[in-house]
Amino acid sequence: MDKLINDFSFGLFFWQILLFVGLLLLLRKFAWKPILEAVNNREEGIKNALESAEAAKKEMQNLQADNERILNEARAERDGMLKEARQLKENMIADAKSEAQTEADKIVAQAQATIESEKKAAIADLKSQVAGLSVEIAEKVVRKELADKDKQLELVESMLGDVTLN
């Protein structure tokens, strides 16, 4: 301790404090502040870059998931549409078929009705012709029969006998 006190030099202490504090103030202004600022800025920059890269990655993943989802949706939609179309096609075919069937049935029925009515008309025509012919034949027969007076009277008598007065 004695040696320490003996070795102590106020002059050296004075210069040391002066030099050190001067150096400290100078370095603070010209070195430490800009250095620490630059280092901090760079570290912030790196941190931000990493963060934004992470965010971009996440966004990318989201986007990919979105794409996947949209693709799936589109696929499902397409499948639905196809299914619908197929259904529609089948329906249409079935409808067409049934429609055609009814139409055909109708046509057939109409044809049958026409045939029937034609038949009826033909029959009626035939009947009337047969009736005319029979009448004509009957006329010719009657005319021959009724050439004498006796026979005419006899006929009138018999006809009158048929007609019953009521």
């Binding site: 050296l12 210069w15 040391q16 150096l23 370095l27 010209f30 800009p34 250095i35």
Partner: peptide, 25 residues
């Protein structure tokens, strides 16, 4: 208050330090 060997050494180091770190900045 003499400029002793130690004061010169400190001055030397102070100057070196100043230029080193000023250069870095």
């Amino acid at each position: 208050f003499s400029i002793t060997k130690n004061v010169v050494s400190m001055l030397f180091i102070a100057i070196i330090m100043f230029f080193m770190f000023r250069g870095l900045a």
